[in-house]
Design a protein around this nucleic acid. Structure first.
Lengths: 340, 340
DNA sequence: TTGAAAGCGCTAACAC
DNA sequence: GTGTTAGCGCTTTCAA
């Protein structure tokens, strides 16, 4: 920078003013400085700037696994929503408590101005302790008691909507895939709750034998769970999967077993990932507004960074049901619609 | 840090020594400092450290689109390969030249120590200019003339392998989906070259009418291309898709048109993403070793950062053919194998 | 083995 | 409108 200042015949401060677009600079001076910058190929040092400003302009996005399609799509939304405002630093926790702590620790030391976190194991005051004052917005998980800003769909209601849709199809033996008993909290619990509520409201008997646990949320976990269920001799007439990846694994197994979807078994997922529009059959799903999640979360975080003491806020993101072939609607990839 | 030093009754230098794990510190002193750190909840400021050290420990991973499954899986591999060594900063270019330049510009100013780039539009000296000396490793694209380190599968050979497999199945009218004419370079060109070479080697006539351009690499682009091809009255007996997402779009359209896969039309993709193991039918694909790509690329980058003047290196990553149902093998999700 | 002093490159505050 | 001064928090000399 000194070189630039020298070449332009001004002080470092003026160079700084030009770089940061301050108004009170004579056009002539500005041009001279810009020429010098170009001539020297000068690039301001980000670390120095960050140190001086006390901010890095970076935001951490912490998700469980980046290759679960929902999180890949969500990450893309965040990168787009942040473009020009923040730099997004993506980390994954793999759903392991250890990694979750390690990632939060690594993001300490003012690496990021704030964090958008999709928590899986840490919660409540423990989580807040690990954050050590770093502004945070939680996504996808109901915070334990208004400790932090939160952006998510109404998971219970959304799950209820999905299951009510299946019930409306005349299905009564509805399995749930994606139950987590350890830890028995978070998003999976909310979706399970919605599932049970819907059955109860319809006067259907709950059946714990139809509530399938999975050790993860990839396609293979859905496939394994469905295989196990069928091998136990259970024959549900519908399946509600806690995410689309699980549902796609389930679809694959049903195909292999010669079971027709939706005729024999209807299947609905959660997330509305692109993949579900092209699967055979196409996958019905609960569709959260991912763009809204990203935009609202970043907006909240920005405000939180600026006003750390502001009251905690809770944002509910809208969702809708995408009904496709796996629960009864014939459709094409293009404009072709159809009837159930 | 001063607070910590004061509390521990030592100088800042000693605190620094402890934090950085230097050996020449008395155990007693070390313990005292560590206690002070814990007591004060002290976290070293990363910006200050980076400024002083001249390194940030961050590496930029620049991919076209994070929600293309291959790049999501690759990103995961990079995050895992980098764990503990680098912090990975993921950015996407959306395949747009403008964004590609913007991202490279944003990563200037020593934000990252180096860049892993999957380039789409920039190339050659122009690319090197934009990097302005930042160490770089290119992935997926053959660099124009040994200007930078490069890690990738042998795209031409891999594409040839895929098409030869189709030919081996007795197919002769083989379409290619994913051709890019603008810019007519890069990975798509290599795969097209391999496709043409395989046809030529088998004495099959090339047919430009079967080379389908796509404006992108998502499922919908594959679906659109296949729809257009069939609507033109073409009836290939096999399709080679330049990536799996395209292939999955193609599968969907073939299903809608009532064409059997592989009986009427065999389909093979490229990337071997998890999704293809669960699609109906499951998808044959060229499988690059993604873990190896990530590990080798980071190793190369680290060496490049340490020795900027080292000779440029070219790493070829192994690949293999995963033959699944879409080219003739019946299989289950589990251990079940089968015969064509 | 530890301390003192200097400075990484930038910008906030204030002077001119 | 522009220059001067000081200091962000750390690590790296060099000295003790």
């Amino acid at each position: 920078m000194k070189d630039v200042a020298a070449l332009a015949g001004v002080s470092p401060k003026t160079v700084s003013n030009v770089i940061n677009g301050f108004v009170h600079v004579t056009p002539a001076t500005r041009d001279r400085v810009k020429d010098a910058i170009r001539h020297l190929g000068y690039r301001p040092n980000t670390s120095a700037r960050n140190l001086r400003r006390g901010r890095t302009g970076m935001v951490g996005l912490i998700v469980p696994e980046l290759d679960i399609p929902y999180f890949a799509e969500l990450a893309r939304c965040f990168l787009e929503a942040a473009a020009g405002r923040f730099t997004i630093l993506i980390e994954q926790t793999l759903g392991e408590r250890e990694r979750e702590e390690a990632v939060l620790a690594a993001l300490g030391g003012k690496v990021v101005d704030g964090i958008v976190l999709s928590p899986l194991t840490l919660r409540g005051t423990e989580l807040m302790d690990r954050l050590a004052g770093t502004p945070v917005v939680l996504i996808g998980e109901r915070p334990s008691g208004g400790l932090a800003d939160h952006v998510a769909v109404d998971n219970i209601r959304a799950a209820r909507d999905a299951v009510q849709h299946l019930i409306g199809l005349g299905r009564g033996r509805i399995a749930a895939v994606g139950v987590r008993s350890e830890p028995f909290v978070g998003t999976p619990l909310l979706r399970l709750t919605g599932y049970r509520e819907a059955l109860h409201a319809a006067g259907l008997p709950g059946d714990r034998g139809l509530e399938c646990e999975t050790p993860g949320y990839h396609r293979r976990h859905g496939a394994d769970a469905m295989t196990a269920l069928l091998d136990r001799g259970e024959r549900p007439d519908a399946v509600f999967c806690f995410n689309d990846a699980l549902a796609l694994g389930v679809l694959r197994v049903l195909h292999e077993r010669g079971l027709r979807v939706p005729e024999d078994i209807a299947v609905i997922g959660f997330d509305d990932v692109d993949e579900g529009r092209f699967s055979v059959p196409s996958l019905s799903s609960v569709s959260p507004d991912k763009t809204a999640v990203a935009e609202r979360a970043l907006a909240l975080l920005q405000e939180r960074i600026e006003t750390p003491s502001a009251p905690v806020r809770e944002i509910v993101i809208g969702h809708r049901l995408r009904v496709r072939e796996s629960t009864g609607v014939r459709e094409g990839t293009g404009t072709g619609g159809g009837t159930p």
